[in-house]
Amino acid sequence: MNVNTWLEPIVFFLFAGVVLFSAIGIVLTRNIVRAALFLLGTLGGVAGLYFLLMANLLAAIQLIVYAGGTLVLIVFGVMLTSKSPWVRFAPSRSEAAAATTIGLVLFAALAKIVTGIDWTVAAHPADQPATVRQVGNLLLQQYLVPFEVASVLLLVVMIGAAYLARPEN
């Protein structure tokens, strides 16, 4: 018996469990830094799911951009803007009610839409050639122009950021 057939569900439920547990943790915790840590679990778990789907590149990007960049940004944002890193959320009843209502409505709408649509599903991911190679080929051929434009964008933005961050003397 192929090892994948019984290992795959176990790993899937492991990662899915991590994602769900951390997501609930984000909502329930009152400590903002702890919420950021739970977010790491969610984002990392999603990266694990991507690995399971053989989307290696997407998983790596998920780890670098979200688990790495975005999370650091959030933590820095908290540290720089609040007086103490141990800020506690204390949502009022009405805020909690509003958030719950919006969340439920959004969830219902998304669930209806996602289940109601015939999404195009590719062949089994494992049969596809390696994604890194494909993406590399696409970046230097079909998407060469956006790739180059992105580099001009980064140059200009870097100059702007360096100017704004530099102390005035």
Binding site: V145, P146, V149, L153, V156, V157, G160, Y163, L164
Partner: peptide, 15 residues
């Protein structure tokens, strides 16, 4: 390209 172009026009404008 539309996303990149709009970002290219916006980000320097913020600065």
């Amino acid at each position: 390209m539309i996303i990149l172009a709009i970002e290219m026009a916006s980000l320097p404008s913020y600065a």
